[in-house]
Simulated scan of single mutants.
Amino acid sequence: MKGQNVGYRRVSTAEQTTDRQLVEVVLDVVFEDKASGKDAKRPELERCLSHLRAGDTLHVHSIDRLARNLKDLQEIIESLTLKGVTVKFYKEHLTFEGSNHSPMQMLMLQMLGAFAQFERTLIRERQAEGIQAAKARGQKLGAPSKLSAEQIEELKARAATGTDKSQLAKEFGISRPTLYKVIAA
């Protein structure tokens, strides 16, 4: 039974593009996420997995595009191959089919999946170190304040006189939690 050629492409941020992924592969359907690969709860991946049927082939540029977590990667591959779906990874030159379980390919999948998970852990560590270093330099993190110093003073004064907090938040274009943070500061 000849099924569909289904592509799955993923990048981590909205600024990145999937232009280099599966460029020369003829696909019937493509699912594309712009989200972290830290877990399998991605809208287009979930749509892709529910779309796939026996006889289909899932084409993925590389293992780390499908999953950055070894457990998720193994579960996805196992569920798809049991369903009769072939999974092809182009960068690693690996193909997984339900009828052909190669111990060497499973070893490669597990090793490469472990490296992808390790890389994700290193990224998180570097990110945390960068945040700590920025804080140590006194750099302010997060979005810039929506309120000027004058607006903050006016907001505090009006809140102190008993003006309705919901009305103040609406008037200044901020949420109530933000209003309470400003008042407390």
Rank of each mutant, 00 (worst) to 15 (best):
L155M: 12
E32H: 01
P43N: 04
A35P: 01
G130Y: 15
V23K: 05
P43W: 04
T17A: 11
K88W: 05
S102Q: 01
E44R: 08
F172L: 13
S102Y: 01
A114F: 07
A149T: 00
A54N: 05
K91Y: 07
E154V: 10
Q4T: 11
F96P: 04
G138K: 11
E97S: 15
E46Q: 15
F89L: 07
K34A: 09
M1L: 12
E44T: 00
L45G: 03
K165M: 15
H101V: 06
P177H: 03
D164N: 12
R53W: 06
P177R: 03
M106S: 13
S99H: 12
S166P: 00
A128Y: 03
S166I: 14
Q127L: 10
G55T: 13
Q151A: 11
A159N: 03
L141D: 15
E129D: 06
K181C: 00
G55H: 15
T13W: 08
Q74R: 02
K165I: 05
I123R: 00
Q16Y: 07
S102T: 08
H59R: 13
N100W: 09
R158M: 13
S12G: 14
L94C: 15
L141C: 12
A160N: 09
A149Q: 03
R68L: 03
E92I: 09
Q21G: 03
Q4L: 10
K2M: 15
R120G: 02
G7L: 09
A159D: 00
A136F: 01
L73S: 01
K91C: 03
K91F: 06
F172P: 03
V60R: 11
V6W: 09
Q151C: 01
K88V: 06
L45I: 08
E15I: 04
L122P: 00
R10K: 06
K91H: 04
H61A: 07
H93A: 12
S79T: 06
A128T: 07
Q167M: 07
F31A: 12
G98F: 07
M1D: 06
F115E: 13
V11F: 02
I63P: 01
F96G: 02
A160D: 06
I63R: 02
L49C: 06
A143V: 10
N69Y: 01
G138H: 11
R126D: 12
L73I: 06
F115M: 12
S99R: 15
S36K: 05
E92T: 13
A169W: 05
R9I: 10
D28N: 08
L52F: 10
F89N: 08
E150P: 00
R65W: 04
L82E: 09
Q105V: 04
T81Q: 08
I183T: 02
A185Y: 00
M108Y: 15
K34V: 06
M111S: 13
L109V: 03
D64C: 00
L112Q: 09
